[in-house]
Design a protein around this nucleic acid. Structure first.
Length: 553
RNA sequence: GCGCCCGUAGCUCAGCGGAUAGAGCAAUUGACUACGGAUCAAUAGGUCGGGGGUUCAAAUCCCUCCGGGCGCACCA
């Protein structure tokens, strides 16, 4: 009896009860909540369905709950059903029914937890997309961790996911980058609006080194700058890719903005919108009437000097993604870009698509740097930039990814530089990883003392810590689904921490290998299944976060 | 001024209307000649920013105020 079966049984019973009462309510599986209660005294599973239906049906919630409970009590695998409080239905499974999940999990292995929420759906997930004008800082690192994890979660739900990086190699910021490199080469101070970090001189030196000819023979300053631009961007971008790879994040597509401008894609996108009647000319510029679709003001797509405005790249890029066949296009952006959401949604509607479905934008709050409890402003000049590489160097990839992915993207996270450099062991990732390593150790010990999985008798899993552990294991698939639906990878991390805790407590109370001269019994064998099932779920969960599951630590 | 996010234990954060609000860290006290003590058990710690409202039920939804972050270009 797994949660899905129990849900189906409950739904059937509820439907039957409603019919007998002559109600027109037709609940679906989603309307019949089944949750694990916080309090152990409230059984293995609990449902508030009676309270939900009481009003539309015009019945007393406790009475309704009683009717449902009575039938549910007869179902196979159900040990007892109680009505509690205002109308909660508390369900206790018999040990064999509850324990069956352990074998199911071990048999499914890496497949356990997968679902079909996005079966066959093409999803384009764009994240990081940092300008190649410097290394990825800690903010971008957060999106790398979150985005990659989301991609893994969508894939687990059957989605066909493309990880995409929008490579912004067109426009003024790149010009500033090129001028900064040139200034470094010429020994001039960094331009007022340029970049002044140490990496600039490093890149400049590498450009000089990589350039096949002699830079000093190039006649004009503009031409030298162009060399720094093209070679410097390539080098910077190579560094970014390398950092991301080191971090465990590899993109399927690196899309160059420049391509959109040079291929005429921008012109085509504007022409398309013009056909649709959403383009007009005013003050010498070309405008998109985004106000027709909820934006605060119309947006310039072609400036009066004839140059394409930034948003024109977005128009063409979106169209390009749609032409490549992506039903869902999701973009992760930092909170400093949340002002773009409305205009991008307006754009989506202007193309005749559905905002928030075909295009979805996830706004994540920024990462705060803190030292001695004082907020620290990240500044390239002040040397307080913490890059992805810095972070990884100090805490390692697993701890870095985990700490960035374990809190909601809606909250700003504080990263304390001192804590980071001193105490790395307070990261909960070690608690989870240790639990996994422990399952491996137990399995090794079991093998050494002759405990195998030749027998599985779930009715022997009777200890309280066992039923708690089993209940938690059974929840994993719905946690994954929820994380996918809400685009919230942190739920996986929190779940893994909880599961690790249940496992540690079970380990403390129940032995898998016999002591001394004790005989190996079916209890030991069955517990080994439970141990291995826990290892599987921890491993699968950590995999969704892109974090390793070590067998030894 | 307008918009988005946040305000929960000393700190960092969970808790998409449910029962007695949780975890990690920090503090105090216990548990190894028993599968790894990176663990476990116990204690302490809270006006869920304030105030209204919605309902059987609000940390959660609505309104309002306070506080913090971030945005409001023919910049990218």
């Amino acid at each position: 009896m797994n949660p899905a079966e129990l849900s189906a049984t409950l739904l059937a019973i509820v439907t039957g009860v409603l019919e007998r009462r002559g109600s027109s309510e037709k609940p679906t599986i989603a309307d019949v909540p089944l949750e694990r209660p916080r309090n152990r005294d409230h059984g293995d599973w609990t449902s508030n369905i009676a309270m939900k239906l009481a009003k539309p049906v015009g019945a007393n919630p406790r009475e309704l709950a009683g009717e449902i409970a009575e039938e549910l009590g007869k179902a196979e695998g159900v040990a007892s059903v109680d009505v509690a409080g205002p109308g909660f239905i508390n369900i206790t499974l018999d040990a064999a029914a509850a324990g069956a999940i352990a074998k199911t999990i071990v048999d499914a292995g890496p497949e356990y937890g997968r679902g079909d929420l996005y079966e066959g759906v093409t999803i384009n997930l764009e994240f990081v997309s940092a300008n190649p004008t410097g290394p990825i800082h800690i903010g971008g690192t957060r999106w790398a961790a979150v985005g990659d994890s989301l991609a893994r979660i969508f894939s687990a739900e059957g989605g066909i996911v493309t990880r995409e990086y929008y490579f912004n190699d067109h426009g003024a910021q790149i010009d500033r980058f090129a001028r900064s490199l040139l200034a470094s080469y010429l020994g001039e101070p960094a331009p007022e609006d340029g970049y002044g970090g140490v990496y600039i001189s490093d890149i400049a030196a590498r450009v000089i080194n990589d350039y096949p000819g002699d830079l000093s023979t190039i006649p004009t300053r503009e031409e030298v700058q162009e060399v720094f631009r093209s070679v410097g961007v390539e080098l910077m971008f190579g560094d970014i890719r390398a950092s991301l790879h080191e971090f465990g994040v590899d993109f399927d597509v690196y899309f160059h903005e420049n391509e959109l401008h040079e291929s005429g894609a921008v012109d085509r996108a504007v022409a398309r919108l013009r056909e649709l009647g959403h383009i007009y000319e005013a003050d010498g510029a070309t405008w998109l009437r985004t106000t027709s679709f909820g934006d605060d003001k119309d947006r310039v797509v072609i400036k009066s000097d004839g140059e394409a405005a930034y948003i024109s790249g977005d128009l063409a890029y979106y169209l390009n993604k749609r032409e490549r066949g992506f039903e869902r296009n999701i973009i992760l952006l930092g909170a400093d870009h949340h002002g773009y959401v409305q205009r991008l949604m307006a754009m989506t509607a202007a193309f005749g698509d559905t905002p928030y479905v075909n295009l979805e934008i996830i706004i994540g709050q920024l990462v705060n740097l803190v030292r001695d409890g004082e907020p620290l402003r990240m500044s390239k000049r002040a040397g307080t930039v913490v890059t992805m590489e810095d972070l990884v160097e100090v805490v390692g990839v697993d701890a870095a990814r985990y700490s960035l992915v374990r809190s909601s993207t809606d909250t700003q996270v504080d990263i304390d530089l001192d804590v980071l450099t001193k105490r790395t062991n307070d990261n909960p990732v070690f608690y989870v990883q240790y639990a996994h390593a422990r399952t491996s150790a137990v399995a090794r010990n079991a093998a050494a003392s002759g405990v195998d999985r030749s027998v599985f008798d779930a009715s022997l899993l009777t200890h309280e810590t066992e039923s708690i552990l089993l209940g938690s294991l059974a929840e994993f698939p719905r946690i994954v689904r929820q994380a996918a639906e809400l685009r919230e990878p942190h739920r996986i991390a929190r779940y893994a921490e909880e599961l690790a805790g249940y496992y540690h407590r079970w380990y403390d109370a129940c032995r898998v290998t016999p002591l001394g001269e004790e005989e190996v019994t079916d209890v030991h064998r069955t517990r080994l299944w439970l141990n291995d099932a826990t290892g599987t779920v921890l491993r699968n969960g950590l995999a969704l976060l892109g974090v390793g599951a070590p067998e030894r630590m």
